[in-house]
Design a protein around this nucleic acid. Structure first.
Length: 268
DNA sequence: ATGCCCGATAAAATCGGA
C-alpha cells in the first residue's frame, strides 16, 4: 500500500513540529506540501531526511513554495507548470517516484505526483482572477498531456476551488468569492472530466468534508470550513484507490496551519 | 462588515491569504 498526502502547511518553518509529528505518525510515502514560504536553502531538509524522506522543493521567499517529500526515490520532472513565464510564482512541482513492489518478486511501479498551489484569484473579476483561470487552463492542458501516458498519476494540492455548494459552509455568502465562482468550478470540472477522480468526492460524497478553516472569527469552532484541497487521480490511480480521508485533527492543536492534510491509500 | 487571525518582512505597518 502506498499513502499519498497533500497539506498546505502555511509556512514550513512556523509549522515544522506539527508537520514532522504528522508525517511520523501517519507515515505517508509521499507528502505534497504547499505554501512552504521559504527558499530552497531555507527548507528544513535534514529534519525530514531523518524521517526517511527524499526532499525536493520549489521555494520562494515569503510567499507560495511547494515541495514533494518521498520515502522512495524520486526524479523531478517539472519545477513549474508548462507555459510559465520567467517570474512565475513557485506553485508547481512534479516528480516520478519509484515504488518498490509489495513482495520481493513483484515489479516496482512508477507513480507520478504533482504538488499544486493554485492561485487564490480574489477578488473576483480582477487581474488576479483572470490569472487564476489562465493558470487552470494551463493545468488542464498539461494534465491532458499527462493522461496520455496512462500512468498512476496524482495531482494533489491546494486548488483554491470549492467544487460545489456542499463544499462551503455558507454557499450564499461565498457565492461571489473566487473560490466558489462558477468560472472556477467549471474549470475544476473540466479538469476532472478529462478522466480524473476527486478522491474525497468519490469516496466520501457527504457534504461538509472541509479541509480549510479561516483563522478569523472562530471559524474552526463553528465549523465554518471549505473543501479546497484535493487529490485528483488518473484512471490508473483511481483503480487502485483503497481508502482516502481528511485528517482534521491537526487543526484543533496549538498554532495550526489553517489547512489540514488530505490523504489517499493506493494499492501499489 | 472585508475587520476579526496569522505568517513574513523587518523593525511598525503592510501584504497576502481564503
Amino acid at each position: 500500500m502506498t499513502r499519498i498526502a497533500t497539506w498546505n502547511v502555511n509556512s514550513i518553518k512556523a509549522h515544522l513540529a506539527s508537520t514532522l509529528a504528522w508525517a511520523k505518525s501517519e507515515k505517508p510515502d509521499v507528502l505534497l506540501l504547499q505554501e512552504i514560504k521559504c527558499l530552497d536553502d531555507g527548507f528544513p531538509r535534514l529534519e525530514f531526511e531523518d524521517l526517511g524522506y527524499n526532499v525536493e522543493t520549489v521555494g520562494q521567499k515569503t510567499y507560495n513554495g511547494v515541495a514533494i517529500l518521498s520515502r522512495h526515490p524520486l526524479t523531478v520532472e517539472q519545477r513549474s507548470l508548462p507555459g510559465a513565464k520567467d517570474d512565475e510564482p513557485a506553485r508547481y512541482i512534479e516528480a516520478l517516484i519509484e515504488v518498490p513492489g509489495e513482495q520481493k518478486s513483484s515489479k516496482r511501479q512508477v507513480l507520478r505526483a504533482a504538488s499544486i498551489y493554485l492561485p487564490n484569484g480574489n477578488p473576483s473579476g480582477s487581474e488576479k482572477f483572470a490569472y487564476k483561470l489562465a493558470w487552470m487552463e494551463r493545468l488542464i492542458a498539461h494534465a491532458k498531456a499527462l493522461l496520455k501516458e496512462e500512468e498512476i498519476l496524482v495531482l494533489g494540492g491546494d486548488y483554491n476551488v470549492c467544487p460545489t455548494d456542499a463544499d462551503v459552509y455558507d454557499p450564499e455568502g461565498w457565492r461571489d468569492d473566487a473560490l466558489c465562482r462558477p468560472e472556477s468550478r467549471a474549470k475544476y470540472r473540466e479538469l476532472l472530466y478529462l478522466g480524473f477522480t476527486d478522491a474525497i468526492a468519490a469516496r466520501h460524497p457527504e457534504p461538509g468534508n472541509y479541509t480549510f478553516w479561516d483563522y478569523q472569527a472562530g471559524a474552526w469552532q463553528k465549523n465554518n470550513g471549505l473543501r479546497i484541497d484535493h487529490l485528483a487521480l488518473s484512471p490508473q490511480a483511481a483503480d487502485r484507490l483503497a481508502d482516502c480521508g481528511i485528517d482534521k485533527r491537526p487543526r484543533g492543536k496549538e498554532k495550526p496551519s489553517d489547512h489540514v492534510p488530505v490523504w489517499c491509500d493506493l494499492e501499489l
